[in-house]
C-alpha cells in the first residue's frame, strides 16, 4: 500500500525553479531517504508535503486523499509529523509542555471548557499529560520533563523533537537532517533510535540526511535529487554505484 504518492510536484519561487516534476511513492512501513547536494530542493519537498508551501503544479496524496489546499496544522491532523533541520522546539517552555502542545489538534475539549474547567477539561488535560509522560519515559527523558529545551544538550534536544513529533500519532514521519550537528557518538545512538522508533511505532519514515552512514545503515530505498530534479532512485547498493550520483553528490574518491 502506498502511504504517500507525489506526482509531478513543481515549485517555483517568483521565477526561480526549486523543484521540477518530482515523483515518488512511499510504501507503507518503509524507511526511505531523500539525498542530494545543498540547495537541491530536499527541504522544499518536505515543506510542500507538510503544507507550508502550496505547490506551483503537481499533486500530493496521503493515504489516497489529496493534501492540496490544506494548512500545515490540518496536514498534521491527517497523520504527517516532522522534525526540522535546525531544531525548532519551543525553547522557553518545558519539555512536557512542548509535547502537550503537539497534541493541540486533538485536545478532547473546547474553548468554553478552558474557562469552565469541568470534567471534560480535566479528562482532556490528564489524558494529554499521561500520554506525554509515557512517551517521555519510553524516550528515557522523564528527568528532563520540567526542563526547558534551551538548557538541554543538543543531542537531547533532538530526542525531544522526535518525541514531540510522535505524540501526534503520525502514520508518516518526516525527518529533516536528524543527524545534523550531532557528535559521532550521538549519530550511532540516533541510528539505533530511529530504527527503534520505526519498529515500535510502526510508521513510515522519510528522511533527508547528508551523513551517508545514517542513510546506508537505515534506509532500504534512496531518492537522489539535484537542481530540483530526481537524478536517481533505488536501493543503497544501486545508489552507491550510480555514476550520476557519484558525479553530483557522493564524489569520486579517485579524483
Amino acid at each position: 500500500m502506498t502511504v504517500l504518492h507525489i506526482d509531478g510536484l513543481t515549485m517555483h519561487f517568483s521565477g526561480l525553479s526549486a523543484l521540477e516534476g518530482f515523483n515518488t511513492r512511499l510504501a507503507d512501513g518503509g524507511l526511505t531517504a531523500l539525498i542530494g547536494p545543498n540547495g537541491a530542493g530536499k527541504t522544499t519537498v518536505f515543506n510542500l508535503v507538510s503544507g507550508f508551501y502550496q505547490p506551483t503544479a503537481g499533486s500530493i496524496s496521503f493515504l489516497d486523499r489529496p493534501l492540496a489546499g490544506l494548512k500545515p496544522h490540518q496536514v498534521t491532523a491527517r497523520g504527517i509529523a516532522r522534525t526540522f533541520q535546525n531544531i525548532r522546539l519551543w525553547k522557553d517552555m518545558t519539555v512536557l509542555d512542548n509535547l502537550r502542545l503537539a497534541r493541540h489538534h486533538r485536545l478532547g475539549y473546547g474553548i468554553t471548557d478552558v474557562f469552565r474547567r469541568g470534567g471534560r477539561y480535566r479528562r482532556g488535560e490528564d489524558g494529554i499529560e499521561a500520554e506525554a509522560m509515557e512517551l517521555l519515559e519510553t524516550f528515557k527523558l522523564t528527568a528532563a520533563a520540567y526542563e526547558r529545551p534551551k538548557n538541554l544538550p543538543y543531542g537531547v534536544q533532538r530526542k525531544v523533537e522526535l518525541a514531540r513529533a510522535l505524540i501526534s500519532r503520525p502514520r508518516l514521519l518526516l525527518l529533516d537532517e536528524p543527524a545534523a550537528g550531532l557528535t559521532s557518538r550521538d549519530v550511532v545512538e540516533l541510528i539505533d533510535l530511529i530504527r527503534w522508533i520505526h519498529e515500535t511505532f510502526r510508521l513510515t519514515i522519510w528522511m533527508i540526511e547528508h551523513q551517508m552512514k545514517v542513510v546506508m545503515n537505515l534506509c532500504s530505498r534512496i531518492t537522489v535529487i539535484d537542481f530540483g530534479r530526481i537524478i536517481a532512485e533505488g536501493t543503497p547498493e544501486e545508489i552507491r554505484n550510480d555514476p550520476e550520483v557519484i558525479r553530483a553528490y557522493l564524489g569520486d574518491d579517485k579524483l
Binding site: A81, R88, M93, R100, R103, H104, I111, V114, F115
Partner: peptide
C-alpha cells in the same frame, strides 16, 4: 485559565516559534 491550559498555551508557542506551532498541529 486561558494561558495555563494546553489550548491557550498555543499563543506561547506562537510567541516562541510560530512556524513550528502551525507545523506541529496548532491552528494558529
Amino acid at each position: 485559565r486561558f494561558v495555563s491550559s494546553t489550548y491557550g498555551k498555543g499563543i506561547i508557542a506562537i510567541q516562541q516559534d510560530e512556524v513550528a506551532a502551525e507545523m506541529m498541529g496548532v491552528n494558529t
